[in-house]
Design a protein around this nucleic acid. Structure first.
Length: 421
RNA sequence: GGUGGAGUCGCCUAGUGGCCGAGGGCGCACGCCUCGAAAGCGUGUGAAGGGCAACCUUCCGUGGGUUCAAAUCCCACCUCCACCGCCA
């Protein structure tokens, strides 16, 4: 949620941000208008309410005729208060819903433009060259008895799969390695709920009503999370955090659920784009003035993980038009996928500044002891999708796959061998 | 799922319609006392919003309702605890 006070002071900043995102900037005028009307309605209500309280008290002290008179006046006031309050509340609701539709202010130096206007910040590692025709991850996964999409479809439908044997071991090992790295860096490990209330979803910046990605359980008014960012953000909702504990960092392990509506025909093969996968996510609460440095730290931890699986990747600075609702800035790390001859997203780290914290009422005390919304940031440490990159980049001619050194202790295997030929 | 009990300012608690714009204790902060500390004494001590100064309004689990007036009465819901039933 945008801060109304700073909006009043500098409306042009939001206008510019809206334009950078390719979103409507006239919402600024709507907000200013609603805000002004709400404030005057509120002050009208408050004046009436104060009078009503005074009169009400004198009723209890008065006797006889005077009492009857006061009572009549109080009755009249009560009606006025009721309608003044209703008016202020109505405007408040209109303001809130207008506000909920507004995305976070973008960081000034984020690249302008849409999906294709990202800026490549770095390319790391060398792309493998094979003296045989490389297999894609699904072919490898089937050869190794590691991935079973056919039975996934049989049991649950398209975009579902089973991780089995070496595949299951690889995923458990990978995510354990991510958890271990996070713990060593001082993160608090968490296994989170995957079903959350609507306010957790909304507070994190997802639009429950429109978002086609979200699985819903209407009977219980619960929502399956697409990332543990949601429960980790909502975890400290309505709390005032002790400033001395910041930055407060959590590493959440959860399954993630995405409907992938509208992606028909895209990435239909294998496990690149699926309805359910597992992820270890970093989540950080910090002081707003430290958010940009923290963002770099999260990116560094992602790079550290990527280095451990020894695959080539690049880092991109995502353009303003391609940022999520809550993100002010976003860096993605994309791993090289030999079978596709291109990079695919493996991690994503967003600085959400105080946008989520304001929605979720997560604060800490500033220098003067006044509560102030904290900044929240998130970043990927590992996901099921990483297995695609690992299998493809480390494959050998016979279909076996060399397990990256760092991962071996976690997987318990040096090489994954085909179970059939 | 059923029955019963409970939810008050960080914690404990007082409070059964106007004296509650919430009292007390603990904790915390500051001051006095002290060589220093403890004890003792005194003062202060929530959040949100509006003027942005005095001050005003809202918040006693949440949402409705009754009333001139609700922490207090009524209804629904949520959470927690206990017991029962069912169940991985």
């Amino acid at each position: 949620m945008i801060d109304l006070r700073s909006l009043r002071e500098d409306p042009d900043r939001l206008r510019a941000s809206q334009r950078a995102r390719g979103e409507d900037d006239s919402v600024v005028d709507t907000l200013l208008d609603l805000d002004g009307r709400r404030r005057s309605a509120l002050s009208a209500f408050e004046t009436l309410r104060a009078e009503q309280k005074t009169v009400g008290k004198s009723v209890s002290r008065a006797q006889g005729e005077e009492r009857a008179e006061l009572l009549a006046r109080a009755k009249d006031l009560a009606a006025q208060v009721k309608s003044a309050e209703a008016e202020a509340e109505k405007l408040g609701r209109e303001l809130d819903s207008a506000l909920e539709g507004v995305s976070n202010l973008v960081e000034e130096d984020a690249p302008l433009g849409g999906e294709d206007d990202y800026v490549v910040l770095a390319e790391v590692g060398e792309k493998p060259s094979f003296d045989f025709t490389p297999r894609d991850h699904l072919e490898l996964g089937e050869l190794l008895g590691a991935i079973d999409v056919e039975r996934g479809a049989k049991v649950s439908g398209a975009r579902f799969f089973f991780m089995r044997g070496a595949g299951a071991r690889l995923q458990l090992g990978l995510l354990n390695m991510a958890m271990q790295q996070a713990i060593e860096a001082g993160f608090i490990p968490m296994i989170t709920p995957v079903l959350v209330k609507p306010e957790a979803m909304r507070g994190t910046g997802f639009h429950i009503a429109h978002d086609k990605e979200i699985y819903r359980l209407p009977e219980d008014d619960l929502y399956l999370v697409g990332t543990s960012e949601v429960p980790l953000a909502a975890y400290h909702g309505n709390e005032i955090l002790d400033g001395a504990t910041l930055p407060l960092r959590y590493a959440g392990w959860s399954s993630c659920f995405r409907r992938e509506a509208g992606s028909y025909g895209k990435d239909t093969r294998g496990i690149i784009r699926v309805h359910q996968f597992d992820k270890v996510e970093m989540f950080s609460y910090c002081r707003p003035e430290e958010a940009r440095e923290e963002h770099q730290r999260l990116l560094d931890w992602e790079k550290e993980m990527l280095a451990k699986i020894e695959i080539p990747y690049r880092v991109i600075d995502v353009a303003t038009g391609d940022l999520g609702t809550s993100a002010a800035r976003k860096f993605d790390c994309e791993g090289w996928i030999p079978s596709q001859g291109r990079y695919r997203e493996l991690t994503s780290t967003s600085n959400c500044t105080d946008f989520q914290a304001r929605r979720l009422a997560i604060r800490s005390r500033d220098k003067d002891g006044k509560p102030q919304a904290v900044a929240t940031l998130n970043g990927t440490l590992a996901t099921t999708r990483w297995i695609v990159a690992i299998l493809e980049n480390h494959q050998q001619a016979d279909g076996s796959v060399v397990v990256p050194k760092a991962l071996r202790p976690y997987v318990g295997l040096d090489v994954l061998e085909p179970v059939k030929s």
